[in-house]
């Protein structure tokens, strides 16, 4: 069971309180009614499945109810960071020891 830091509750909570909600930062096109098939395909059907870092959404569904974003390493299941919905995508860089650091907060 993972431990997930909810950016709204300000603490780590057990995974049982959360629900995974798909890839993050997939912007819904506006106006969506006007986009062509290729753009719709990219928006709705195509998703990344990386080995390594993934930007994804979670919802603290049995907690504060909020959706938020997370950066997780799919190899170690380690969360690099979580941040509120609507915030800009957090960039992450590899550090010397093979771990990950938030960009701008490197040691």
């Amino acid at each position: 069971m993972l431990l997930i830091a909810c950016p709204y509750c300000g603490e780590e909570r057990p995974e049982l309180e959360f629900r995974h909600a798909g890839e993050a930062h997939v912007a819904r096109p506006d106006p969506i009614a006007e986009i062509d098939d290729a753009a719709f395909e990219a928006f709705f059907f195509l998703r990344d499945n990386p080995k390594g870092l993934i930007w994804e959404r979670w919802r603290h569904v049995h907690g504060c109810g909020r959706f938020f974003n997370a950066v997780r390493d799919t190899v170690s299941d380690r969360f690099i960071t979580t941040y509120k919905a609507g915030e800009v995508r957090r960039e992450v860089v590899r550090d010397d020891e093979g771990g990950y650091q938030l960009k701008g907060e490197e040691r």
Binding site: C9, R13, L16, E17, H62, G63, C64, G65
Partner: peptide, 9 residues
């Protein structure tokens, strides 16, 4: 806190 107990919220 809202949380879970067994299989319920």
């Amino acid at each position: 806190s809202r949380t879970v107990l067994g299989k319920i919220e």
